[in-house]
Write a protein that binds this DNA or RNA. Structure first.
Lengths: 114, 114
DNA sequence: GAATTGAGTTACCCTGCGGTAACCTGATGT
DNA sequence: ACATCAGGTTACCGCAGGGTAACTCAATTC
């Protein structure tokens, strides 16, 4: 056989927190889309439903709640009537935008490559 | 009521391809982990199983196959006996690493923030 | 000749997550 | 008086996707 556990010894100096845990920030259906559509400013619940077409109210509201708990977005109720609710990225949330952008760029290149 | 569809008109100049589609590059359990663990070089099937503890052979092999089809990783069979198989990131695949890194950094900050 | 190894594959089960549809609340417009 | 609107919530259902366990195959070593 000859090898078994040669060279490679799992080169992982704990960078901070583990990937799985960090990636779970973006977990749940439409989570990245929500962040993406908030990248250019606050939007309201029903606007987001239209922005992200096949998302159901149930899932959107669940996702918004989670993202808020994770510290990625903020919820502000506007004293109109009926009250409308605006969601926007927190400062940390905004830091995710370039990361998503980078992913989109790679995705784009992969599509062009054939 | 007063508003209905005020100001915001979905500020989306199609950046290239849509987010959902691009994000699907990373879809499936453990996909980001596979990329992450290949970031510092090629690794073999059973090494990856050990690197990413609770992944089953079935899912790992499915994920590797998908990532390969997507053009993110390459598979090389080494003529040893029994043959061992090395997986490594393609050039496009490597471009995903900084994006994942950025996400990890935000995740880390969120954890520290309390 | 039996056991081990690497790299999977297959059959089976089971759960969680998302979709659909209906409903709610309080203030306003007609 | 009634419908409408914003922003949800709730009950129910279905299935895709992951886990487990057992098996394969060929070459090698004991």
């Amino acid at each position: 056989m000859a090898l078994k556990v040669t060279k490679n010894k799992s080169p992982k100096p704990p960078i901070g927190c583990d990937l799985t845990e960090c990636m779970s920030m973006l977990s749940g259906a439409w989570a990245p889309n929500v962040i993406w559509h908030l990248r250019s400013g606050a939007r309201r619940f029903n606007e987001l439903r239209i922005d992200i077409p096949p998302v159901s109210a149930k899932v959107l509201s669940a996702r918004l709640k989670e993202l808020q708990e994770r510290g990625i977005i903020e919820r502000n109720v506007m004293p109109t009537s009926p009250p409308s609710v605006e969601y926007q990225l927190t400062e940390l949330g905004m830091e995710l935008v370039p990361a998503l952008q980078a992913i989109v760029e790679v995705g784009h290149k992969l599509k062009m490559r054939d």
